[in-house]
Simulated scan of single mutants.
Amino acid sequence: MTKAERALETRERILKAACEVIADIGFENVSMRKVAEHAGVSKALLHYHFDTREKLFAEAMTHSFAQTGTDLDGGDADVPAGVLLARIVRTMLPTDEELRQDWKLWQELWVRAQRDDAARHLAVDLYDQLHAWVGGAVERGVASGEFAPCDVAAISTLILALCDGLGIRVMLADPRVDLSTAQSTIWSAIAPSLGISPAFPET
């Protein structure tokens, strides 16, 4: 392994550890020492890669976001747009332990964004990327004729808003909203505009 490869591997290990620690105890309780210990590196090495907690938090959020939902069509352009969109919806809800960790990180970001401009700009940028991700799947369905012509931006905004609102209820273990209810509610809300069945697809 080259020096550059070792540095990249160390950086990835630190970011993974930071995501886990922040999700576990909250950003306000995180110290660089705790992240270094969890990553199995020295505090000096951690500071070599990230000189402040704030920069580490921003990089951890970006890292977590980048790991979410990559290659949902498996590289197969023939995957129906409805299936792809359903997979995106599932990925934007806390459907497994890894995604629940992502949700905890998002919740930390929402709180910080209320009082920190850098966090607010990061949140807005990540939402722009989510909007483009959802919009791309909708546009794909419209282009193929699988979805009816629609206001792609409005549908994308609606999907993100529903995922956020219902996802929080799932995270709270609200007995009125489980994952199945969240998925079916989102799908039935967008189905009329897309001209598709309101039943959530098998993915």
Rank of each mutant, 00 (worst) to 15 (best):
T2V: 02
A4R: 14
E5W: 01
L8E: 15
L8K: 15
R13H: 01
I14E: 03
A17F: 00
A18N: 08
C19K: 04
E20R: 15
E20F: 02
D24M: 03
D24Y: 02
I25M: 10
G26K: 03
K34Q: 11
A39N: 07
S42W: 07
H49A: 07
D51T: 13
D51G: 02
R53K: 15
R53Y: 00
F57K: 11
T62P: 00
F65G: 02
A66W: 03
G69K: 04
G74Y: 10
D76W: 06
A81Q: 11
R87V: 03
R90W: 02
L93M: 09
D96K: 08
E97S: 13
Q101H: 03
K104Q: 15
V111S: 09
A118L: 06
A119T: 04
L122D: 01
A123R: 15
L126I: 10
L126W: 05
D128H: 14
H131I: 01
V134F: 07
V134P: 00
G135T: 09
A137E: 06
A137F: 08
R140S: 09
S144F: 01
G145N: 09
I155L: 12
I155G: 01
S156L: 06
I159T: 12
I159W: 04
D164G: 08
G167M: 07
V170M: 05
M171P: 06
D174K: 11
P175A: 11
P175Q: 11
A182N: 11
Q183H: 14
S184F: 00
W187E: 04
A189K: 10
A191Q: 12
A191I: 12
P192W: 12
I196N: 09
S197K: 02
P198Y: 10
P201R: 12
E202C: 05
